[in-house]
């Protein structure tokens, strides 16, 4: 197992590159979902506010 994580001495370079790639991939996905929820909430708030005024 340790041997696997050591990656023949390349661990310092290899694991960060996987981390960077996956972080970009899932980070972009996560922020997209989060942004969608935020926008839906903002629209809802705007609509509620307008209805109250009426």
């Amino acid at each position: 197992m340790t041997e696997f994580f050591a990656m023949g001495g390349y661990a310092v370079y290899l694991w960060p590159s996987y981390v960077v790639f996956l972080a970009v991939l899932f980070g972009a996905w996560g922020t997209a979902l989060w942004r969608g929820r935020r926008i839906r909430r903002a629209i809802l708030r705007e609509r509620r506010g307008r209805n109250d005024k009426r």
Partner: peptide, 11 residues
């Protein structure tokens, strides 16, 4: 390149 080449799988 030994194990180091495995970086191309994400690059």
């Amino acid at each position: 390149q030994g194990q180091g080449y495995r970086m191309i799988f994400v690059h």
